[in-house]
Design a protein around this nucleic acid. Structure first.
Lengths: 223, 223
DNA sequence: GTCTATAGGGGGATAGAC
DNA sequence: GTCTATCCCCCTATAGAC
């Protein structure tokens, strides 16, 4: 069961990053936890930033491939017809929740990912943008086709809100436990709850601004 | 227009914290931006942690008082009858969005707050718990009364999801702009969009797990 | 109250032996 | 590939002059 130093460093970094954040995790903490030497990080990865990037890419590349594969399967089955919004949501978020459900490592990573969406660090932003480019393009296209009545800008906001709910769902342990004792040990239940909420939000009546925008293009811009 | 050193430090810290995070912001950055001396932070606040706490409490105490006042007004008007879920949601999130809408400082602070919910740092968690205790208790009680059919655990999750959507809504500029060009300069539009989504999610049909839980208490726990 | 100067610790990175 | 030792930088906090 001896894994090589490189993998041990990645595992240790993943665990520590989710606990202490990007800046709060030091190379000394990582190498100590990985039973490796301090210099090993620079030998294997080149720098702290490059290590962090490797931690994300290791699982994120695979995750996004799964998402695309799930969408491919749906679209093949539909033979060119638009998908149901529910199918698309289940496809995207289902793959995500399933990764969290499959293993403790998956959960750790998803929590790290949830935290990191709000991390404005430039270098993180750039490689996340790279990793997500294809998935985003594919799912946006599928949603636009499935919901031709929803203005694209509205949909982008709703997808954004869905990501927020997902993020909190996964990092639930960290964020406001203030709300009350919650049982987040049952991924199937979490999946069902989240899906119900997301579909409800996605299919909600459009806010009035759209009607206004059509009828009165020169309406006052509210403060 | 000369403000005192203490206020200038708080303002500078607020701006820098949202850009660079808690660990990424140094006292040197803050005092330089505030045109104050490095030692001034320790003189006025005692430590970096105490300064951060002061940054949050300065606006959060007021914000939560507003939320409670809004709920008080609704409940007085209702004379003991349950409120509509929509009213409660609009009350809580409306106050929040309004603070973001009112000024650039409000927006900055709300983005900082959104980021911080996922910050697992112990000292942050403890003073946030303190600041939120009363609001959470009041709103939970109002929701339970308004939605007697929704199991409390389900509601706690849904409130959690709503907080996530709110958080992403406010920190929209930071998080996945990948989704596409979004216009977050119109708080009224954002309010309308978010409210529509949140109400849709809150009122969504309950997931099947509840029916199962009632009918088969000994049902297999899904992995 | 505000400054300078500095203590004292910890950070990332690297040189060079093995 | 892995280690030790070390460089050099930046951090928070404080002592003490003004």
């Amino acid at each position: 069961m001896e894994s090589d130093t490189r993998s041990r460093i990645l595992d240790a970094a993943e665990n520590l990053l989710v606990q202490h954040g990007l800046d709060g995790t030091t190379l000394r903490m990582i190498t100590a936890a990985a039973h490796a030497n301090l210099a090993a990080v620079n030998y294997h990865f080149g720098s702290k930033e490059a290590l962090i990037e490797a931690v994300f890419r290791r699982r994120l590349t695979w995750l996004n491939e799964q998402r695309i594969a799930a969408l491919d399967a749906l679209e093949t089955a539909a033979k060119g017809a638009p998908l149901k919004p529910r199918q698309i949501v289940e496809s995207y978020f289902g793959v995500t929740i399933r990764m969290a459900a499959a293993s403790a490592e998956g959960r750790t990573f998803m929590r790290l990912l949830g935290r990191t969406y709000t991390e404005p660090s430039e270098f993180v932003r750039s490689f996340l943008a790279e990793e997500y480019a294809e998935v985003i393009a594919r799912y946006k296209a599928a949603f636009f086709k499935a919901l031709p009545d929803v203005p694209q800008e509205e949909f982008i906001w709703r997808f954004h809100f869905m990501m927020g709910a997902l993020s909190y769902a996964i990092s639930g342990a960290d964020a406001l436990r203030l709300l009350g004792p919650i049982d987040d040990t049952d991924p199937e239940a979490l999946y069902a709850r989240l899906m119900s909420f997301l579909i409800g939000g996605l299919r909600a009546p459009l806010p009035e601004i759209h009607a206004q925008a059509v009828r009165k293009p020169r309406a006052k811009r509210a403060v």
